[in-house]
């Protein structure tokens, strides 16, 4: 449908809906339930250079209007993603996929991205900078503009694919982070990653998550995400993907009115595996309701 089409960093999308990394695996669980080619694309499970088991369980807690996760980037490592996950994905998904990359050093980000750069199925590299920098005293790359810029430059050096830097909301000034990435050559920005939070069990008097703290997502973070997307869209010229608690067609339009070129949908997929197709089905109807001809006119 022409009116839903958008363009993300030079690659056309049939619609702006992108399941967010960590809520969609490598797509197969959802492909059993619906044709995932209906989506704009999806961002696959956060991938690191080496395989990771992640954090001990419990990794999941609930909160009003959302959830908290501390999965800890469980993934099979980039080589297995390339040799096993991407060929399997090819059978069910025929569009360019967004590769989500994490790392614990600048070099690790660059090595992982260099390997994914060779993969034809990969359309964009989405670089998650919310992880701690093992060479930076454990401080997250995503909370220091200079570190974020360093990762951006290192990744841009090893790829010709569009590089989208995924920002952490756990900062004082989100626009400083976005501008640092843009100045370092990023082709796009996506935000927000999860907000740090925790829960304590009244029964055990201890934190519910084995990792003590985790990332909050779901409808409860939507207003915060929207505010940050709005700020970033006014601070940079590159395209912005808005995410954080989107769970309806109305939320999609609101996020695009804040300036987002496309949107990612995360926690909603876990509550309802058909969330993305339901939102997609309703989108034209809600656009009609508000007199929106095409999504491009919202830019």
């Amino acid at each position: 449908m022409e009116r839903l089409k958008v363009n993300l960093c030079g690659i056309p999308l049939d619609n702006p809906l992108i399941p967010a990394s960590g809520t969609f695996g490598f797509g197969y669980e959802f492909a059993e339930l619906y044709d995932i080619n209906q989506l704009g694309t999806f961002s696959f499970k956060g991938t690191t250079r080496e395989q990771r088991f992640g954090n001990p369980t419990p990794r999941i807690a609930e909160c009003p209007g959302g959830m908290i996760n501390a999965v800890g980037l469980q993934n099979p490592g980039v080589e297995k993603v390339i040799s096993e996950e991407l060929p399997r994905l090819k059978a069910v998904f025929h569009k360019p996929v967004m590769a989500n990359v994490s790392g614990f050093s600048v070099r690790e980000y660059a090595e992982t991205c260099a390997l994914l750069d060779r993969e034809e199925q990969v359309g964009w590299l989405e670089v998650n900078i919310s992880c701690p920098n093992v060479h930076g005293g454990g401080m997250s790359f995503g909370t220091d503009p200079a570190s974020a810029a360093e990762v951006t430059r290192a990744v841009k050096n090893v790829t010709t694919k569009p590089v989208i830097m995924k920002l952490s909301p756990n900062v004082t000034d989100i626009t400083a982070m976005a501008k640092a990435c843009e100045d370092a050559g990023a082709d796009g920005i996506s935000l927000i990653n999860t907000l740090q939070g925790m829960r304590i069990s009244l029964l055990t008097r201890k934190p519910i998550l084995a990792n003590t703290m985790g990332g909050v997502s779901g409808p409860c973070v939507f207003p915060i995400a929207l505010r940050m997307v709005y700020q970033v869209c006014r601070a940079v010229r590159i395209p912005v993907i808005g995410m954080g608690g989107i769970s309806s067609a109305e939320d999609v339009l609101e996020m695009m009115m804040a300036g987002a070129t496309a949107v990612e949908i995360g926690a909603a997929n876990l509550r309802d595996p058909l969330a993305c197709v339901r939102i997609l089905d309703r989108l034209p109807q809600v656009m009609d309701q508000y007199g929106i001809g095409t999504l491009k006119e919202l830019k």
Binding site: G22, T23, F24, G25, E29, F30, K45, F53, G54, T57, P58, R59, I60, A61, M67, N69, V71, Q74, I208, N269, L270, R271, P273
Partner: peptide, 13 residues
């Protein structure tokens, strides 16, 4: 404790 219950979130590994 599970997030999704169908294999997407890796919450119960």
């Amino acid at each position: 404790r599970m997030g999704c219950g169908f294999g997407a979130c890796m919450g119960c590994s």
